[in-house]
Design a protein around this nucleic acid. Structure first.
Lengths: 199, 199
DNA sequence: CTTGCTTATTGTACAGCGTTCAGCTAAATT
DNA sequence: AATTTAGCTGAACGCTGTACAATAAGCAAG
């Protein structure tokens, strides 16, 4: 990985290795530790070499965000229990997000990912909501509620950036149970609830 | 506000003017535009002059975050309708957050504010939940759910950072209605089975 | 086998960031 | 009036993301 090279010599980088190493750096050094320079040095390469594979740092992070969502399990297309499937999808999303705590705040800062994986997930959710009887605006609203709730909770479960000061325990398990209960409330409201009249 | 000063001369800064100007800069130039250097030049002052009033940029932002929460209306202490009051508090928090979109992502990145205003709000919520019959762990969980939901929704209502690309309108009104419905679902779930009547 | 084109990579550099240190001087204190 | 305190400046450090021009490796064509 290390090599003193003169200009023109190749290092054999790949877009995939760049992204993968970026993920590694992120989990090891945190969000602040993910700098183009550090990533480059990790790859044994000059910083600007990365720009052959990534338009800029924002694009890199966007790709990272979407990559992570690839791990979310989506249920078999035509199940008999859309509500349960919905619960599974959200719970899976939640736990996937928990696996990459540093990224979570970024999802909210950018209002969710926009890549293909995110889009696919969004469509799966709409499909399940339709199977449960919700369409149109109501379905979009419900989806938004579920997404916000899930990402938001993952953000809260993330370990605090600094200050070990008087840190309340708040283990990931605690938050997970908390998440599951809140999710049930939401699903009950969304699917069963009393008339959601105009208001 | 503008003045070429020689070393030793004072500019008459105040912690309050610094914070207030920081808020202005934030709303005008966004989060990326809020730099110590820009803030300083706006105050007609060398960048490092700010460090007499603020420990560092993080502390500055922390103060900003907590300041905003001062505008949240909290209900009269001993109401007969804690559920309704809870709804009022959360809705008020939501609209206050909407007024400062640039700050919202930071709340999540830092897992909520930690200043006195945030603390007060948190205690008000616990008080209302207790009045509604929830104490102990259940109350803390419920509070967490409500906070996540509220901040998360505010984050989603925030206008996207860049890309006007095919942006769905998603007006603040839309999101507000959405928020209110989701909130009802949560409250219904939190406070035990039956639908929440009031509000 | 050579010629030429494309592209990955380097060195250098720029502008900007948060922050620290040392000095100066106006204001506050004694 | 003398002395301390504190607000402010100038300069600098190390860091960031990124643009530009030069170089050489790889590849396609003659």
């Amino acid at each position: 990985m290390a090599g003193p090279r003169t200009p023109g010599q190749r290092a054999g980088l790949t877009r995939d290795t760049v992204l993968k190493t970026a993920r590694d750096v992120l989990t090891e050094r945190g969000l602040d530790g993910l700098t183009m320079r550090h990533l480059a040095s990790r790859l044994g390469v000059a910083p600007n070499a990365l720009y052959s594979y990534v338009a800029n740092k924002t694009a890199l992070v966007d790709d990272l965000l979407d990559d992570v969502l690839a791990d979310v399990e989506t249920p078999a297309p035509d199940s008999a229990d859309p509500t349960g499937d919905l619960s599974v999808v959200m719970t899976s999303t939640f736990s996937v997000l928990l696996g990459h705590p540093d990224l979570v705040p970024l999802y909210l800062a950018r209002q969710g990912a926009r890549g293909p994986n995110a889009q696919r997930l969004g469509e799966v959710m709409l499909h399940l909501l339709a199977a449960a009887g919700l369409t149109g605006t109501a379905a979009h609203e419900a989806r938004r509620v579920l997404i916000v709730f899930t990402i938001g909770f993952a953000a809260l479960a993330t370990p605090a950036p600094v200050e070990p000061e008087a840190a309340p325990p708040l283990t990931a398990d605690d938050v997970s149970g908390n998440f599951r209960r809140g999710l049930q409330w939401l699903l009950a409201g969304i699917l069963g609830g009393p008339a959601v009249s105009g208001s």
